[in-house]
Amino acid sequence: MLQLKQICKTFSPKTVNEHKALQQIDLTIHKGDFVTVVGSNGAGKSTLFNVICGNFFPDQGTILLDGKNITWMAEHKRASFIGRVFQDPMRGTAPNLTIEENLALAYSRSKRGPLHFALNKKDTAMFQESLAQYKMGLEDRMKTKVGLLSGGQRQVVTLLMCTLVPPKLLLLDEHTAALDPAASEKIMQITKEIVARHQLTTMMITHNLNAALQTGNRTIMMDSGKLILDISGKEREQLSLQDLLALYSSKSNKAFDNDRMLLT
């Protein structure tokens, strides 16, 4: 499904600030995988996502999606089959557009001609129905500007925008980290529902190690731009939090920086 071959990315090469953010990453993700990605700050997790969705290009290596080489494809073209949700709730939605306009924008991509009305009854009804599933009362506020919503509500809208047309690959970059614990829990629940319903191939970065082990079917760990751990199946089921931390220390020769880690 998604294949990364020998991906390298160096920031500010040949200067004092040279930083190897990704070093020879080899990774294959199968259809229907739900991979959680962990690693300390600056490990290169977001950089990996940026390379996959074309925010910038790798210095070296190939990216294949369903066998097709997308290494040099423009970001907006990839966006039609890669969905992405960021940590910052402000990033995924247009604040001065209403909920239904935001959803329509995401939904009408490549569907009709540019001069067709963006909103129609049928689509709006479908949006409303989809929102109603998450029981946040958003279905009654279709004409509210998204800028007036809470962070959690905005993330739900963003998630829905990314999945109205199910993408081949869904990338979640700490998408619950900016929310309070209750909202975070709720959004995580909704994420699982959406992924299960469409059987989406998903990668999710998280700093919550518990969530990382309990969500999805596979966990990878990054450190200093390298993949240092990739576990799934039985081995992963039997792994405890302490085991994971121990594995990290032994592989990277340092203790996990747990300033932002949630060990609960």
């Binding site: 939605t93 557009l97 540019p114 963006a118």
Partner: peptide
């Protein structure tokens, strides 16, 4: 009110999001 018009409004509002919605 058309799709093209909505794209223009969204671009002024949040360019990154428009790009992520697969709109040039």
């Amino acid at each position: 009110k058309t799709h093209a018009g909505l794209c223009i409004r969204a671009t002024g509002d949040n360019e990154a999001m428009v790009r992520a919605s697969s709109i040039p």
